[in-house]
Amino acid sequence: MATGGRRGAAAAPLLVAVAALLLGAAGHLYPGEVCPGMDIRNNLTRLHELENCSVIEGHLQILLMFKTRPEDFRDLSFPKLIMITDYLLLFRVYGLESLKDLFPNLTVIRGSRLFFNYALVIFEMVHLKELGLYNLMNITRGSVRIEKNNELCYLATIDWSRILDSVEDNYIVLNKDDNEECGDICPGTAKGKTNCPATVINGQFVERCWTHSHCQKVCPTICKSHGCTAEGLCCHSECLGNCSQPDDPTKCVACRNFYLDGRCVETCPPPYYHFQDWRCVNFSFCQDLHHKCKNSRRQGCHQYVIHNNKCIPECPSGYTMNSSNLLCTPCLGPCPKVCHLLEGEKTIDSVTSAQELRGCTVINGSLIINIRGGNNLAAELEANLGLIEEISGYLKIRRSYALVSLSFFRKLRLIRGETLEIGNYSFYALDNQNLRQLWDWSKHNLTITQGKLFFHYNPKLCLSEIHKMEEVSGTKGRQERNDIALKTNGDQASCENELLKFSYIRTSFDKI
């Protein structure tokens, strides 16, 4: 039985969820670079991206490699990797027998973001014989899940209580170790020597080791999670996991709180800001991140802002960003909400898709409305799209047979046209069989910064309504002859009103 693990408890099935942008060198404390989270699957090609990484700022997932063999891993080693800020997950990587050479110096898994409450997941690794993470000293947050690894031993010899604050939620089941077939031998045991430290858990006094050649490092209890030197002297209180010299914040392997210019500090002093819960960055760093993602459509890219001495992905609820200094300031009234469309555009074809934009005031991208039916549609669209004030790209209304009016965009005031449909149009209306009105132009103002209007096959939309939009939106004169079809717009509506004058002759039985 794995020490510190839980057996036999019912657990939810383990679901495996399925960018080499360097964020800056980590400095003297770390020998390499800070790398983003990685999802490495199918083959070993991307694994080489770990070569210079000291910190993975995010998670590391290595999974679904069915053609790899043990010899493929023999020359692979990433000794610079010290810390993973989120979680480490391995799933069905064939041929991998140990992690001792792959990650010989991995010391800390912070667990800032977890995989279903777990910071370390080893699942269905069919050839893994031992973990071998002999320098792993601290899992700051989260638990361990090690399950269905039929060859995995050296679990009962690990004292997880020396690595985690609590072992109650560890789930370590259905491994070879369960069948008591392992016969784990710690260093020196074969020669009758006791080389590794022994600890007591559940009444068992057991030597602690990761492999037959690597003991588990056990520091004096007084050192807590700070770690200790090879001689057993406690590291500085700002260290986490390990250090090369005692009581020196510049000799830590990793930091308990924050890293700044080669030393570990309790908090980031001005003019620095907390970033990702582990390091200090200056304003320029946060500003660069903001600008890199301002026009990016890459998933996970955030326009970072500053709030409460932190550089964070977005302002919290009730705050909006001051564009001059990136500071989050309290909103006066309802907060603006910028919604970034991942692929640059979004099609609204149902109430469900409209709900995804609920509360958005600025759309960074283009909207395509293609709704053919739905219950209580006008009210639903207004509830979900009615706060949109600005669209950076274009607005396209296409084959939306259920629409009679666009009044559900009740606050839309600006279409920038930074991206144009077919390279020309910022407003595009095609084949809307029941569209009769755009907006009530006596109450609604709309500016279209650039781009043209396109109207074709809107049989109940009168040309007068379209011409009014040209005047109000500032697009009059931009359109070419064929942009607004004269014969297919309003051709099934009563669009022309003329005053009919009647004269009559009164007659009676005795007068003409």
Score class of each variant (00 low, 15 high):
319 Y>L: 03
70 P>T: 09
124 E>Y: 13
103 F>K: 00
243 C>A: 00
335 C>A: 06
297 R>K: 13
75 D>Q: 10
30 Y>T: 06
166 S>F: 06
262 G>A: 04
159 D>R: 06
305 V>Q: 03
230 A>I: 09
299 Q>E: 12
155 L>Y: 12
237 S>W: 09
225 S>V: 06
296 S>I: 05
86 D>H: 15
63 L>K: 02
198 A>K: 11
61 Q>Y: 02
198 A>F: 10
301 C>Q: 05
43 N>L: 05
170 N>T: 07
283 F>D: 08
155 L>G: 14
77 S>L: 09
336 P>N: 11
310 K>S: 07
66 F>I: 15
200 V>C: 13
200 V>Q: 11
204 Q>I: 03
139 I>C: 02
159 D>M: 04
130 E>H: 12
69 R>E: 09
258 F>R: 04
50 L>M: 11
174 L>W: 06
243 C>T: 00
272 Y>V: 02
185 I>W: 15
62 I>G: 01
297 R>Y: 02
207 E>V: 06
50 L>Q: 01
162 R>S: 06
186 C>P: 14
190 A>Y: 10
237 S>N: 13
294 K>N: 02
212 H>P: 11
96 L>F: 02
283 F>V: 11
198 A>R: 09
229 T>F: 13
119 A>C: 03
202 N>E: 08
104 P>F: 01
121 V>I: 07
120 L>C: 05
171 Y>G: 14
139 I>E: 01
218 V>G: 10
203 G>T: 07
46 R>A: 13
137 M>Q: 13
180 E>W: 05
154 Y>M: 10
150 N>M: 06
202 N>M: 08
75 D>R: 03
108 V>M: 12
230 A>E: 13
57 E>P: 00
203 G>S: 09
178 D>V: 12
298 R>F: 05
82 I>N: 05
294 K>Y: 15
255 C>W: 01
328 C>K: 03
248 D>L: 04
162 R>L: 11
56 I>P: 00
234 C>P: 06
201 I>R: 06
182 C>G: 04
276 Q>C: 03
243 C>V: 00
254 A>K: 03
219 C>N: 06
111 G>H: 01
137 M>Y: 12
113 R>W: 05
257 N>F: 05
293 C>P: 02
271 P>R: 15
203 G>R: 09
263 R>G: 13
335 C>E: 04
135 N>C: 05
316 P>H: 03
224 K>P: 08
95 G>K: 04
280 C>Q: 01
232 G>I: 04
205 F>A: 05
109 I>A: 00
66 F>K: 12
188 G>V: 07
262 G>D: 01
229 T>H: 03
96 L>H: 01
299 Q>Y: 03
246 P>L: 06
299 Q>D: 08
241 G>I: 02
134 Y>W: 14
271 P>D: 02
322 N>E: 00
308 N>E: 13
292 K>W: 07
80 K>E: 03
81 L>I: 00
306 I>T: 05
69 R>A: 14
35 C>E: 00
143 S>D: 10
299 Q>A: 08
45 T>R: 15
292 K>S: 06
160 W>F: 13
257 N>I: 01
59 H>W: 04
249 P>H: 11
50 L>R: 02
103 F>W: 04
218 V>P: 09
240 L>K: 05
241 G>R: 08
133 L>M: 04
250 T>C: 05
60 L>K: 01
295 N>P: 03
185 I>H: 05
70 P>W: 14
100 K>P: 02
122 I>S: 04
286 C>A: 11
139 I>F: 03
307 H>F: 08
231 E>L: 07
284 S>K: 03
187 P>A: 12
198 A>C: 11
197 P>R: 13
193 K>M: 13
209 C>L: 02
59 H>I: 03
277 D>Q: 09
255 C>T: 00
228 C>P: 02
157 T>M: 04
76 L>H: 08
258 F>I: 02
160 W>C: 02
46 R>M: 15
80 K>W: 07
130 E>R: 05
175 N>W: 12
333 G>D: 12
295 N>S: 10
215 C>Y: 09
43 N>M: 08
105 N>M: 04
241 G>N: 04
76 L>E: 01
191 K>E: 05
57 E>Y: 08
90 L>S: 01
248 D>N: 05
293 C>Q: 01
214 H>R: 05
218 V>C: 11
276 Q>F: 12
216 Q>R: 07
111 G>P: 00
77 S>F: 15
34 V>E: 05
271 P>Q: 09
252 C>I: 00
321 M>T: 07
285 F>K: 01
153 C>V: 01
107 T>P: 00
150 N>C: 04
159 D>Q: 13
207 E>M: 14
84 I>M: 01
112 S>I: 15
160 W>R: 15
124 E>H: 13
157 T>W: 03
332 L>C: 07
215 C>I: 10
317 S>P: 07
140 T>A: 11
91 F>V: 07
44 L>K: 07
213 S>Q: 14
115 F>V: 13
157 T>V: 06
240 L>V: 05
272 Y>P: 01
80 K>D: 01
67 K>I: 12
316 P>V: 04
105 N>F: 03
205 F>V: 13
178 D>M: 15
42 N>M: 10
273 Y>D: 01
71 E>V: 15
194 T>A: 07
39 D>C: 15
304 Y>V: 06
326 L>Q: 12
36 P>N: 04
156 A>P: 12
271 P>G: 15
163 I>F: 12
55 V>Y: 05
203 G>H: 10
161 S>W: 04
59 H>N: 08
95 G>M: 03
240 L>I: 09
145 R>E: 02
298 R>A: 09
271 P>Y: 14
63 L>Y: 09
319 Y>R: 04
28 H>G: 00
316 P>Q: 04
55 V>A: 04
206 V>F: 15
297 R>T: 06
196 C>G: 12
84 I>S: 00
169 D>K: 11
98 S>W: 01
122 I>L: 08
320 T>D: 09
200 V>G: 15
268 C>Q: 01
257 N>Y: 06
89 L>G: 01
150 N>A: 04
60 L>F: 02
322 N>G: 09
325 N>K: 03
94 Y>T: 03
236 H>P: 02
330 P>S: 09
33 E>S: 14
195 N>Q: 09
270 P>R: 07
45 T>A: 05
90 L>G: 00
93 V>F: 07
48 H>S: 10
258 F>W: 08
268 C>W: 00
53 C>G: 00
186 C>F: 09
107 T>R: 02
283 F>Q: 04
314 E>R: 12
221 T>R: 08
275 F>H: 08
309 N>Y: 09
122 I>T: 03
42 N>T: 12
262 G>W: 02
146 I>S: 02
153 C>H: 04
242 N>G: 07
189 T>K: 04
234 C>V: 01
275 F>L: 06
298 R>Q: 02
